[in-house]
Nucleic acid binder design. Structure first.
Lengths: 144, 144
DNA sequence: ATTCATGCAAAGGCTTTGCATGCAA
DNA sequence: TTGCATGCAAAGCCTTTGCATGAAT
């Protein structure tokens, strides 16, 4: 297992570069993303946004997430049995371990697994476009 | 990568053992599962069921899949951007490669990856309850 | 001044559920 | 005969979308 780095994109710059408008709602939303190190869903982002600007709508959150995703600025994860959750792009590729009790997401990375995946796909005559590896588990109580 | 075996459960027996009724709709649905080697979603199962018995409802399909799942007789997979798809349990554990062009699902198994997953979880202080490994890819055109 | 983005409410896709009826045991 | 299972329709959850208004350029 390898370390997972995490550098945050300059969203406003990305928005300008994409030729879209840097509006108040978008500023609020990307501000939230910048300050987040977790994997919030749209509703959670909406709540955080409303705390800053009461006029923001949930639709705009969804639209903005979709926009950022299409720009490659964030990643969308559909973990089991819940709404999509988002995280900032820009860090290394990694996979996720989801704590079944808390919903917490722990990032990890294994070059060895990636390599094995490639081998498998190749053996089956496929080229991997992307993959999803999620471990669902519970914290081991080490002694209390 | 290892071979994936596939033996089918005797659903009616499982139903009886679970103490639930072996009704006409349930017979039709498990009959369809027995004859399937693909990964149909609820609507697809419903269509196949209606071809046999016009009176079956989609609700019953959903209810039956939920029942079978709770009995461990089938597995539910929520592949990207689509409805849940089901497959018979009873074969070896395996993971999935989804053909992005056709939606086809190819099963594979890698003990080595499983082992690495366990190591990762252990290193993070977690016990894996279950996991999900999906490769999304396209067939390599080998020469045309 | 334009045009794009927003808020709102409605709808859409998948799935579950309440209820009265029907069928398995 | 008794109660579980069914069909139907309605609702629920998450997400998208149509439309008129408002704001960024």
């Amino acid at each position: 297992m390898n370390a997972v780095s995490n550098r945050k994109p300059d969203y406003e710059r990305l928005l300008r570069k994409a030729g879209v408008r840097v509006t108040r709602p978008r500023k609020v939303i990307v501000g939230i993303l910048t300050q987040s190190d977790d994997h919030p869903d749209a509703l959670e982002i909406f709540k955080r946004a409303v705390a800053i600007d009461k006029t923001i709508s949930l639709s705009t959150v969804y639209r903005t997430m979709k926009l950022l995703e299409s720009m490659g600025a964030i990643h969308r994860h559909a973990f089991e049995g819940g709404p999509s959750r988002f995280e900032q792009a820009g860090g290394d590729h990694h996979d996720h371990l989801i704590d079944l009790d808390t919903g917490d997401v722990i990032e990890f990375k294994s070059d060895r697994i990636e390599q094995l995946q490639d081998e498998i796909a190749r053996a089956l005559g496929y080229e991997i476009i992307h993959h999803r590896l999620e471990l669902y588990g519970r914290k081991k109580k080490s002694s209390g």
